[in-house]
Design a protein around this nucleic acid. Structure first.
Lengths: 194, 194
DNA sequence: GTCTATACAGCGATAGAC
DNA sequence: GTCTATCGCTGTATAGAC
């Protein structure tokens, strides 16, 4: 049903969806009264899957490998539902409630990152000449990247792993010198695949 | 004519455009045979204006204030034509040639940034413990940000100046300690305005 | 529940008068 | 060049048989 991704939310018709699902158009309207409901259902499915993924704060020892793993899981999921981010305007036009849901999700992510940054700071992994302003803007960088990398993907035509690496690299200038090397090495493990 | 921004490329009809322009729908089709041509014309207008803006490489002494000024000009312009970036999918669907044009523009920007980074490096303004890998990924960060900040704007609901500052801040972790302070101060001058 | 058939609205594009 | 009128198509949504 995710030909929303391929053809665009506003271009995909209920006829298309019904054909793809192997049922009649009338039958589709029986299950989902309209397109809005259909999109909302897909969004809730996305949210449920996102919650299932490992979060930063729950299980404690969160090393750089875990950060990378979590990032990979989340980015794969987002990519499956990429129309929610790439065509957010069209989505919100059809299903206005999705907007608030997405904003809440991002706010949760922002707080997760702030927590994680604070954790690493206590561990002494971060540089010490950074203002708290700088640290906050790092978490803003993460949130910025999360909500817009799929758009950038369309422009730059790079595979998913490019953006996983890209996001992971945001940490590096904030790390102590010896940590930098270690984090860069973790990146070598990322497999190449679209 | 830029109600593309407000209502979405695929939602805006030729009737809407004609009404907005104060002419009849038939007349509009006389001037622009179809929607594709109309979008292409708008895109070329955008390109022309983008070229008029001050570029990094042309006039030599390019200080931090100039970087900020150039950024502000470019971002204001992009914001006026934001549908080109926020609804890139819909735009490319209607007017496929626009895609290549945008990619070329971004590639030019990437090279501009690489040149500028190299310039600052020679000036000794950048930290010295940075690999060339790191410097290249800084220019990638700029390109990433340029092509996706308008999408992020929809999610985060921040004013333009937030993103100007955000982009400018990308430099900071790469600067020498004493330069950092100077660059941060330049940011104070940014007026607040949506 | 699932189907076919159809109503109804809105779109892009064209024709033809002025 | 600019208008009005209209065609042909495609979209959503509903009605009604099975």
């Amino acid at each position: 049903m995710l030909l929303f991704n391929k053809n665009g939310v506003e271009k995909v018709t209920t006829r298309d969806i019904a054909r793809q699902a192997g049922i009649s158009q009338g039958n589709l309207h029986y299950h989902y009264a309209n397109k809005e409901l259909l999109i909302e259902t897909l969004f809730e499915k996305f949210l449920r899957k996102a919650d299932e993924l490992s979060s930063f704060t729950t299980d404690k020892p969160f090393g750089k490998e875990d950060v990378l793993k979590s990032m990979r899981e989340n980015y794969r999921l987002m990519h499956r539902f990429r129309f929610l981010f790439v065509e957010s305007g069209a989505v919100w036009r059809s299903a206005p409630t999705v907007r608030k849901g997405t904003e809440e999700l991002l706010e949760r992510k922002r707080k997760d990152f702030l927590t994680l940054i604070g954790f690493y700071q206590k561990q002494g992994m971060l540089r010490e000449d950074l203002s708290s302003n700088q640290l906050e803007s790092l978490s803003n960088q993460f949130v910025f990247t999360i909500c817009s990398w799929l758009t950038a993907k369309d422009f730059l035509q790079q595979p998913i792993d490019y953006f996983i690496q890209f996001t992971f690299r945001l940490w590096i200038p904030y790390l102590q010198f010896d940590e930098m090397k270690a984090w860069e090495q973790v990146l070598e493990q990322v497999p190449s695949q679209t």
